[in-house]
């Protein structure tokens, strides 16, 4: 994974609550055996009508959404299925961060493991971002803060280890494998065996 420290982008806003991973990427696109190219299917049934044409009213289809790397979404984003295809699709489409008032557990973990920054903010900051789509927001992963155009700097919670891995581009499997001796010992010494 590439190290990720700071970036800046305009936002695109999807204010809907409880956007589940089926909406982020529908199950029929999961019959893939790689993680490439999923951006084309991101939010497919929201982005495209039954005729396959883009829905002009969907925020991602508006001209000003072009190139936005930060998605602002309603409460409880990423609930539902554990499919890691959801962060893969968001990243492949070009997103680098998701901001919400709450982000579901499994999605949150999957996002971190792939370099998509899950950012939880309070209701006031969120409401401001929803009311001001397209503003420039900066993200500083090392400091765990976002910067708003009016100069406000807002901290967001992120596990220190996950942050370290993002900033240094560390692969968590490598970290786990460094503990192989402890895993061996655990297997040998435990009181009962599965």
């Amino acid at each position: 994974m590439k190290p990720l420290t700071t970036f800046q982008s305009r936002t695109v806003v999807l204010p809907t609550r409880d956007i589940d991973t089926d909406q982020i990427i529908a199950a029929r696109f999961l019959t893939t055996t790689t993680r490439d190219g999923l951006g084309a299917s991101l939010f497919h049934d929201l982005r495209f009508g039954a005729d396959g044409q883009p829905r002009p009213d969907f925020p991602l289809n508006r001209p000003e959404a072009e190139g936005c790397r930060i998605l602002v979404a309603g409460n409880n984003f990423g609930c539902g299925s554990s499919r890691e295809h959801a962060p893969w699709a968001l990243l492949d489409y070009g997103f680098q961060a998701v901001i919400s008032t709450e982000i579901a557990d499994i999605f949150f973990n999957n996002a971190l493991k792939n370099g998509l920054v899950p950012i939880v903010v309070d209701a006031d900051v969120h409401a401001w971002l929803v009311d001001n789509p397209g503003v420039d927001v900066s993200v500083d992963v090392r400091e765990s803060v976002i910067g708003l155009p009016d100069g406000r700097r807002i901290g967001f919670p992120i596990d220190g280890f996950a942050r370290h891995c993002l900033v240094e581009g560390i692969d968590q499997l490598g970290f786990l494998r460094q503990h192989a001796a402890a895993i061996d010992r655990f297997e040998e010494e435990r009181a009962w065996k599965p």
């Binding site: 973990n109 499997l173 895993i183």
Partner: peptide, 15 residues
């Protein structure tokens, strides 16, 4: 439930 990256972690390390 876990994501696919974690499926890899468990396959490789059982942890």
């Amino acid at each position: 439930g876990i994501g696919t990256t974690e499926v890899g972690h468990v396959l490789a390390t059982q942890c």
